[in-house]
Computed example of a mutant assay.
Amino acid sequence: MSNYETMKDRMSSHFLEYDQEKMIRKFALEHDEKYLYIFFVGRKYRINRITGGITWSVDEFQTEENANYNEAMTIYDVLCNSKEYCHPAHEWVHIGSLSTVRGGNLANDSNFFKDAGKKFDGKTAELAKACERLHGIKMEKDDVAYQLEMFSFLLVVLRFWESDDEFPASLQVLVDRNILEYMHYETVMFAIGHLLERVGEEMERK
């Protein structure tokens, strides 16, 4: 078992130490006796209330897949560690400008965004279609710009500019100024990584 799987299994046990009824009230979660349900970047997940394991499905759980590390760790952090009175500020900030951040993988000039921008270059139509499939709301600026639901209670904005003769392709993600009330900074990396992965999946879907 990889270190990632070990950490994910450890967190599934840790999840069971928390008050699930409080989670349900806090985030208005769909639930039943066996599971809590949550949407994360356009995909429905359920958390087993006995084991803490997380799976996702596109067909109301007639079939299901285990959540990967980025998916699971983001969901666990939000449900277990978000501040008691977390709330959106409804103010967009560049992800690299969060007040507690000093550099790191999500800084403005990091390879994380440069590499992602290269993957989208020359594919603005496909990128826009992927955002539409994720029920994004189009914003009237930039080559591609959409407001997307990370969670139903926490939105993000994806902005992309094609390369030209002077500048390389550029990708930006704007987040709510209060995002760190919902998750740790390290978890933001997992969440944004998953967001871009989901966009990539939708771009490839026929």
Rank of each mutant, 00 (worst) to 15 (best):
K22Q: 09
E132S: 12
M189A: 13
E140L: 14
D77A: 07
E33D: 15
M7H: 13
K114L: 08
E5V: 14
L127A: 04
G200M: 10
E64W: 05
N3S: 13
M183H: 04
H87V: 13
E126F: 11
D9A: 11
I192N: 02
M203V: 09
H135T: 02
A130W: 03
G136T: 02
C131F: 00
A28P: 00
S97N: 12
Y35S: 09
E140S: 14
D109R: 03
Y185S: 15
T187S: 10
G136D: 03
T187Q: 12
N108V: 14
D9M: 10
R25V: 09
S2K: 14
D32T: 12
H14P: 01
G104H: 04
S97M: 14
Y85V: 10
L29E: 02
Y146T: 03
L154R: 07
K206S: 13
F120D: 01
A107Q: 10
T6R: 15
D165L: 14
D19E: 07
K141L: 11
K44R: 10
I95H: 02
K44Q: 08
S57V: 10
Y182I: 10
N66Y: 11
T187P: 03
G96T: 10
K138G: 04
Y37W: 08
K138C: 08
F167E: 03
D115L: 11
A130N: 03
H94F: 15
S13A: 09
E60W: 04
S163R: 06
W161S: 07
E65D: 12
F40K: 00
G136S: 07
D121T: 09
H14T: 11
L174I: 08
S170G: 04
D19R: 07
S110W: 04
Q20V: 10
K83L: 11
R198Y: 05
K118E: 12
L98P: 00
H14W: 08
M11K: 07
